[in-house]
Amino acid sequence: MLGIILAVEATEQSNPILPTVPELFWGALSFAALYLLVTFVLLPPVKKTMNDRADRIRADLDAADAARASAGSAAGEVHDQLADVRAEAGSVVDAARAEAEAERAQIIGAAEAEVATLRADADAEIQAARTEALAGVRPQVAELAANAAGRVIGRDLDVTTTQSVVDRFLDSPN
């Protein structure tokens, strides 16, 4: 069982540190072979694959950057357009509001004017009715006054004379 980990007994005791010629020969041969293989056969394809991948990743990153930049400019455009539209909408609304204001002012003015004329007409009518009423009342008042006065003094008074007095009385401010 020890044979697994131990070499067969050596023939003579020798320095365990100094290298032996056959091992140097095989070591040098093997390393030279490995170096040549790695340099000319093994490494170039692997390096090529790795460089291809790096290039591919770099290209993808560049494309992504470009896409992001174009997306950014498109977004800016949309933003500008939105701002324009918003400004336009504002001006339209302003204009509409000003128009509505003017119309309202006009309607109110017209209404007020109509109200004023109606009131003036009504006033005039009232005045006329009053004047008429006064004019109708005056002879009866004079007659009544003359009768009353005649009763008081015992004789008939001249109606016309009385009339003028009554008129003066009525015309004087109360």
Partner: peptide, 17 residues
């Protein structure tokens, strides 16, 4: 002279290859 050390040296070339 080819012993276990030489065999391992050769394998150290063959396995990476």
């Amino acid at each position: 002279e080819f012993n276990k050390i030489a065999l391992i040296s050769l394998l150290a070339v063959i396995i990476p290859t």
